[in-house]
């Protein structure tokens, strides 16, 4: 996730202090990993350098946390471009799981056990996410669903691979 673009986006609704920005970010996006103050300042100074934000005012007492930032026109354009650009789908062509399975087959270990163990682990995660989803609000649900669908995709790959294990063994040990 691009922290810079996210902070820029938060500024679009109006100028904010640095600590305001951190709080708003944590509240909306940072359930898993809250931002450090340091991250905020380094990001803001980078944006400032590129002319995407400007300092709107400094409160008495100085110090970086007292600065009030506002977004520039260039900054708005930048947010817009970021939102409009689709993310590149990631292709896990050489995932760790695939490597593990092939290695197990090459060394004549039980690949099915590896797959099943992974499957159980995936489902355990899914169970935890499902539980969290049930207790959380809509934001929680959406975030958990995202993760759940990804895990489900992995799980389906695990099931399919388990079903094709014999064929795979024949190919890799040829």
């Amino acid at each position: 996730m691009s922290i810079g673009h996210t902070l820029l986006g938060l500024l679009e609704s109006g100028p904010r202090h640095g600590y305001d920005l951190k709080r708003a970010f944590d509240e909306k996006f940072g359930q898993d990993r809250p931002l450090h103050y340091g991250q905020v300042y380094s990001t803001m100074s980078r944006l400032l350098k590129h002319g995407l934000v400007e300092v709107d005012g400094i409160e008495a007492g100085g110090g970086p946390e007292r600065k009030r930032y506002a977004i520039t026109d260039a900054g708005i354009t930048d947010v817009e471009r970021w939102l409009a650009t689709p993310e590149k789908p990631e292709e896990y062509l050489q995932s760790t799981l695939y490597t593990k399975v092939v290695l197990a087959l090459l060394t004549h270990r039980n690949a099915a056990d590896i797959l099943d163990a992974q499957r159980a682990e995936h489902l355990r995660s899914m169970r935890i996410l499902t539980d969290r989803k049930r207790k959380g609000d809509l934001a929680d649900q959406l975030i958990c669903d995202h993760a759940l669908f990804h895990l489900e995709a992995d799980l389906r790959w695990l099931e399919l691979t388990a079903a094709r294990l014999d064929k795979l063994r024949a190919e890799v040990t040829r």
Binding site: H122, L123, M126, R127, T130, L148, F149, L151, E152, R156
Partner: peptide
């Protein structure tokens, strides 16, 4: 469906 199974305690 794994997502439905995730409502279980055990599978």
């Amino acid at each position: 469906e794994a997502r439905v199974a995730a409502y279980s305690d055990r599978e």
